[in-house]
Design a protein around this nucleic acid. Sequence first.
DNA 1: TTTGACTCTCCCGCCGCTGGAGACCTTAGA
DNA 2: TCTAAGGTCTCCAGCGGCGGGAGAGTCAAA
Lengths: 270, 270
Amino acid sequence: MLKIGDFSSLSQVSIKTLRYYDERGLLSPVHVDPETGYRYYSASQLSQLHRILALKDFGLSLEQIATCLKENVSAEQLRGMLLLRQAEQRARVEEEHDRLSRIQNRIRLIEQEMSMSQEVVLKQLPKQWVASVRETIANYPSVGQLYPKVIAGVGPGLVGQAPCFAMWHDPEFRESNVDGEAGIFLKEPVKAAGGVRVYELQPVTVASAIHAGSYQRLQEAYNALLRWVSDNGYQVTGPIRELYLQNSQPIRQDDESYVTEIQVPISKAA
Amino acid sequence: MLKIGDFSSLSQVSIKTLRYYDERGLLSPVHVDPETGYRYYSASQLSQLHRILALKDFGLSLEQIATCLKENVSAEQLRGMLLLRQAEQRARVEEEHDRLSRIQNRIRLIEQEMSMSQEVVLKQLPKQWVASVRETIANYPSVGQLYPKVIAGVGPGLVGQAPCFAMWHDPEFRESNVDGEAGIFLKEPVKAAGGVRVYELQPVTVASAIHAGSYQRLQEAYNALLRWVSDNGYQVTGPIRELYLQNSQPIRQDDESYVTEIQVPISKAA
DNA sequence: TTTGACTCTCCCGCCGCTGGAGACCTTAGA
DNA sequence: TCTAAGGTCTCCAGCGGCGGGAGAGTCAAA
């Protein structure tokens, strides 16, 4: 019969932890003095404790471990839990590895440019109803001309709240004859006329950068964002979106108070 | 001026999180109505928020991020923080990768043997004063004969509390002429006579298994433990230790109530 | 003016412990 | 046998980064 301190030093597990395991029903002492509450362990309980530590090392929660121990699971059931855990752990390893890559890329960037550069963030975009017009236009800034058509198609009621956006369908940069789509976000589908299409954007993962400043300098943000995408092993998998979070009428190319978000749909390159 | 809900849906960051960042001083709204407490954000704050998210993605704590933002650190200082973070993250990736390996090895073991097998745990042993006798003895069980010498050397005062141990200095298994060391743990150094050596065991990392049962079956535990060591990419780097956590006088080879811990000093194989 | 949707503050919970306070218990030495 | 030191007990608080919910106040459209 070992007192908790002895058991603790034999097992290298802290007294606090042993008491916690007792409370959680993971490992109860063989005897508890009903007068004093003192816990007494037997040396053979060290192997039970070892089992707990081993399962914990696999990343199982204490609750899962308790289930394992109490229900006295078979080797087959344990295998099932571990297979599940293995899948989670695989994902985790990849995630932490990617994080390391991002840190390293960022360090390289600082060392090359000695500047703060654009911050890039991964986002999961949810489904989203939109109303839009898609046309071939003269060049990128011309997209502004499409918004009146959108508004004409859906009526002026729901404008002004959510920001409006553009999507660029060309696979590459173009000087002219740009395949552009201009639209607004909707809370719910509405009827539209005059060539305006109402549909639901599907969920997608994007790399996103915020550009605070004039449209003239938007290209810098594009450069940083696209570089980040390739540096971190992603590839572009859909039309790039621009969200006009802050602008004014009439549109000016040199207004430094504008705020624009660029979103690039991506997936892991093979 | 955006209300918190608008800012939240633009940024895909929850309202709760925005309020928390305000409270922690990471990102305060440009305006707070003194009457109602309503928070109002500007679109340009999205880029500040993006910076926070990017730093968070690197694994920095909110407190570290707050330092970054408030003191307006230079690119050089940021680089320093990231280099530190990179080192931590490297360690983490390795750790999680090793954990995955251990899970996989365990699954293989279950599939091969369909049994629960020994649980193996890694431990960091602290420094420890010991008194011991080292001799060439006839075979492994003969180590029991050394303990009377140890006790004779240090006096009977401090026996019986901490368990006694054995160390095997031969690089391989031996049928006879075993180089064995038998000793007891001490709380503090004492003087000893008669060939008993008192010294401090150095801190070491060991793989440990608990064997609950007779010494006759100890070999099974050894097999499982040594297999685990090689399966998980470690190598043995010192004499193997046995801790006699529970036994009785006189020693019997077939007493199933004994509890023994086997400790193998290891390091990562190159 | 009335809804109904937002927003506010405040508090609790999560996980796996660690630390501390204050009271009680055990054990070795005088 | 007494005492002092050190073990042990229970209970409560805290960590980080929020999420959930209560209860009260605010805002905007119809």
